[in-house]
Structures are given as C-alpha cells and as structure tokens.
Design a protein around this nucleic acid. Structure first.
Lengths: 336, 336
DNA sequence: TTGTAAGCGTTATCAA
DNA sequence: TTGATAACGCTTACAA
C-alpha cells in the first residue's frame, strides 16, 4: 500500500501521535484558529516544525475544492514578449497566493486543447489564455467547462461573456503608421501577423485608417503576412518598393532589420522600421528599435486580478483595453 | 457541503449512476483495463464523453501518491536565456506526461525558499532548480526533504549526492578569452557575475587560465562584478583601459555594447565584445554578438530526463556537463 | 466480468 | 477547549 511511489512525509496524524492530541486539534492549531489553548498551540507548532511538517495542498484541495493554482497558456514562452508577460503574471499571482502552471501551445490549436485539458485535469482555479484563434473551438470548450478564464492579448470580437485584457491594437497600428507618415513615408510595408489573430487584424485596421486619414491609398502588395511562429522572414521581405516597415512584433521587426542589413540596406537611412511590444523596455540592446509600447506589466497584473475576481464569484465579463504609445527609437528617420 | 467554491464537475460516480455500473467498472473501463467487456466499455466511454468527463488528477494524486508535475524554479523567466531553457523544459516534460509549475526567485534566497516550499506543498514529483547560491541553505533543505531535484546551470562543487546539468563554464571562459587573445587583445575586461554563482566563478577561472597560458598577467582592475539582476551596467563600465570585453551573459554584453555606443565608441573597431549563452540562436537581431554557445535545448532535455529518472527511483547522483563553443559574431575584430 | 469497501490527508460538522 | 467522524474523487485489493 505504501511504497507505491509515495515519499514519506509528515502528516497531521504524525503530529497528533507525537503530541497526543487529535488530528483535528493539530489542524486547528496549525491554522491559527482561536479555539485552541495558548500552551497547546505552542507545543503543537513546535512539534510540527521539529518534524518538518509541510501541509499537503493536494489533500487540502481535495477537501476544499480549490487548488490556489492558475494556468498560463500561451504560444511560446521563449518569445521575449510572452516571457515578460509571464514574469509579471507569475509575480502577481504569487502575491495573491496562487501558483502558476505554464503551458505552451506553439500556436497550434490541438496543443492548445491539450493544454486546456491538462489545466482542467489539474484542477486549476482559473486560466489565463492567449488564444491561438484559428477557430473559437477551444474557447467555446472553456466556456462550456465553466472554468474561470480570461484572455490576454487577443480576443474574439462579438463573443459574449468572455473576459479579456488586450492593448489598444487599433490605436497602436494607427499611431505607428501615422508616425511613419509624419516622417515623410508613404510606401509603408506592413509585416502583419495571421489575420485570424485579433491583434494582427486590428493593427492592420489601424494601419489602413492612418493611411486613409492621410490620403494614402491602401496597396495590397505592401501587406505581407508573416507566420506567427516564424522568426526568419527573409524569403518574405520584398527587395524594394517601400521606404518604411511596420512590423507586427519587435521580433519580426528585428528580423527584418537583420535581413535588410544583410542586403546592404541601412536602417533608418534606406528603410525606417517600427515594431510592436517595445521589448527593449526590458532588454538593453545597442540599437534602439522604434516600437509601439503595450504596457506589459499593466496588462499582466490586470489579467491576473480579473481572473481572481472571476474565481471569487464575479459573474460579469469584463474587458480592459490597455493604452498603446510610441516608444521612439533610432530605427525611424525622416525622408524628403 | 457543496457550493463551497467547488465547480460542478462530472465524477466517476455520475457516469456510474447514468450507466448503472459501479464506480469501479467505470474507472477500469476509462483506463482501458482488459477486465471489462467490449460492449460495456464502449457504452461507458460514450457516456463519459457525453457527460464531458475529465479525470480529477487531484483525487488521483491523492490515491496514487504522485502528481505528474514538476516545478521549474529559476531567477527570472523574462531573461531570454531562462525563457529558452524553460520552453525546452516544458516541452520535454510535457512529452513525458509532466506539467510544469513555474516559480521565479528573482535571485533572492528567501524567495527561493518560498518557491521550494510552494512546490513541495503542491506535491510536485520533482524540482528543476537554478539555485541562487548565496548559500547552500535551500539546497540542503531540498536534500533533507527528500524530494527529487536536479540543478541546472549552476552547481555546488564538492556537495555530494546532488544531480546537476551545467555547461562547461571553465572551457567557455577559456575559449572566449583565448578567442579575443587570438584577435590580438591583451587588455580584456571581464564583466563577471557574482562570485557565489558557480558559472561566474568558473568562467572567471577559464579567463584566468587563458590569460596565463598566453603569458598575459591577470589584472584585478579588469574584472568587474555585475549584479545578477542588473541589466543596466552603465555606472560600472570603465571609460577605458581595455580593447575587449568578455561578458558573463549576452544580456550584459548587449548592455555594454549599448553603453559603449552611447559613449561614442564603436564595436568592434574600438572595443570587441564576446558574450555568453548565444541567445541569438533563437532571436534574430541585426547585429551579431559573438558569444559562447551553451546548447540550451540539450541542457534542458538532459535535466528533465535526469529528474524523471530520479523520480522513477534512480538513487545515483549524476552530473552532466554540456560542451561550450564559440558562436562567431561581428562584435569581435582583430587589433594590431 | 463486475461490485464492495478501504484508504490517500485534509477540513467541517457535530458532539463531548 | 478538544475529539470523533464523514466527506472530497479516485484506485486497488478482494469478494462475488
């Protein structure tokens, strides 16, 4: 019965045996309930620490029905943008007494489903999800399963009852494009993300709006979709026909800069570049990339607090849109 | 009794009630044991999926004594080096059926202790730890607590019975320094990590050995310790007195490059730089930093497999040292 | 092939 | 102030 892979641990029962009190008394004493005598409590606490007691959260969860854990499910933790979000999420969760399960989807819908099922199996109290969005299948499943969850960074427009924290992607797309236009650019290449991803779609909307507001005609051939898990977009980048690039992410922007340089073009003299996410707020690099800043800490903290509020019984879906701003950098210059 | 925060979930009992079979039969059928009739099984499986059953790992863990979870405890997931390691760890763990708890220490010993306690409370089957190393207190605690664990990236020389995966830091420090020396540098600034961290200490050892082997005297004033959580080392970087920099990490190397550039110095014409970790293997950047590559995927996979082998009863401590190599980059040039 | 009952470690209820 | 007992959902030993 024992020795089935179970480590020998100290249980309430062991403290009970040692002290002569009942399991119940031990439990109450350890949790500081005020129905235990002063002396008794001290004796119990001392014995517990001597024996090296650590509470068994699994057993506690079994009884109480919650685990004080949340799952963070996102595309790829090795992407600095997600890594920074995750850092802040873990930090905030931990302040609220929650531990974090980390699960990657690799932007694949089936892996996302597996991740969600894994999270539910482990009885997480809630899920923070950056959805793959190839379809709304998995989010529908989440809704049906009745587990508290919030989306981060991406959302499903028109879907009711789903809480999310995103940044203002439309504005981000708009101000990035406008910023380039104000620097004299009219042929602006958009390296966009897959159109099923809401942030990609909305940044494109912002791009188009800014062009339109400035009397520049939208040109299909200047919009290129970069696969979401791709870091190398060398085959996708046109040789010329543009003086500036607006990239869906800093990762893509840096990659484009690299390719341009390999082709002998100078940034920003020949081509200006603006990215998205402003990962340089956390990563010192010698050359500064102009970028749209999305306040990752605020986004993370908000989504954790939103989730905890749902876990605690708040039934109303909330949506929070974090502001976006231009973070200036040397990758953009004025052309005549 | 219900409604204490517990979501309504489908249990084996519900399937039993629905089908008329006993809980035991359901359990066996769902786990594909061969003592259940073909028809019965199919009926049960169908009903289970109709009801939307998901197994309760918590209850299973309670009975079985393991959770199929591991904890990854490290300094700071927003550091690209750790983010890449974590990605590979999660990926490998998941292939072996394990889920990952992520816990940050912020390189603080007390936070490390909290993280370890949290992991143990949640009954993780094992821990992968990149230790803070201000003392060996927490690792001693881990040993006493008898939980399977392996160290990654750092180790405690001379400590018995502890498994670890590290890279060859001495060699890394040696070849980096030698590489600079072969490019004509003799005044090499070392931006090292805190000396209590084994990797920092061993890279310094390698640096000294390479200097010595090449007849260059070791100069104390050329060794500067950068705080481990610091990304901005502008106040630490000397104005001159060196022609090359060997940095403890790419993060520090990039930061140094940035500062040099702000001071009007060119890399590599005025100062050559070599870093450590080669994060550009996963992150496309326009300017290539010469770096010591540490095979992060291999290190991660090895440490997970080592941990699982310990979980499965292997008592012998193992230590694996992953090779290091120079990843060339334009940040180093020859001086005359 | 299927069913019964005990047990994992905790907390809540109720009684003493 | 303390103790006995049941319950959380699952798996296993044993019985039928």
């Amino acid at each position: 019965m024992r020795g089935n892979g179970k480590r020998q641990t100290v249980r309430l029962k062991d403290i009970a045996n040692k002290t002569g009190y009942s399991i119940n008394t031990i439990s109450h004493a350890l949790r500081g309930m005020n129905d235990i005598g002063e002396e008794t409590r001290n004796y119990i606490l001392k014995t517990a620490s001597e024996l090296g007691y650590v509470k068994n959260s699994i057993a506690q969860s079994m009884r109480l029905g919650y685990t004080k854990t949340i799952a963070v499910i996102l595309g790829d933790i090795s992407n600095p943008h997600f890594a920074i979000l995750t850092k802040e999420i873990e930090n905030t969760a931990s302040k609220h007494g929650y531990s974090v399960f980390l699960l990657n989807t690799n932007e694949d819908e089936d892996q996302e489903e597996t991740a969600i099922r894994t999270a539910i199996q482990h009885n997480v109290d809630g899920i923070i999800l950056c959805p793959v969005q190839k379809s709304d299948r998995n989010v529908r499943f989440l809704q049906k399963s009745n587990i508290p969850f919030v989306l981060i960074g991406r959302y499903f427009p028109g879907m009711e009852g789903v809480s999310y924290t995103i940044c203002n992607d439309v504005k981000g797309g708009y101000i990035a494009t406008e910023y380039l236009i104000r620097h004299g650019h009219r042929r602006i290449l958009l390296l966009t993300g897959p159109s099923h991803i809401s942030s990609a779609k909305e940044r494109l909307d912002g791009y188009r709006a800014a062009l339109s507001d400035n009397g520049i005609e939208y040109d299909d051939s200047l919009v290129i979709e970069v696969p979401i898990m791709e870091t190398d977009c060398s085959t996708l980048l046109p040789e010329d026909g543009y003086t500036a690039i607006f990239a869906f992410s800093d990762i893509i922007a840096w990659s484009a800069w690299k390719i341009l340089r390999e082709r002998g073009k100078r940034v920003p003299e020949d081509v200006s570049i603006i990215g998205f996410d402003h990962i340089q707020s956390r990563l010192a690099l010698p050359y500064t990339l102009c970028s749209v800043s999305s306040y990752k800490a605020k986004m993370s903290i908000t989504s954790v607090e939103m989730l905890i509020s749902i876990i605690n019984g708040n039934k109303d879906a909330e949506s929070i849109i974090i502001d976006t701003d231009i973070a200036k950098g040397e990758s953009v210059s004025t052309i005549s």
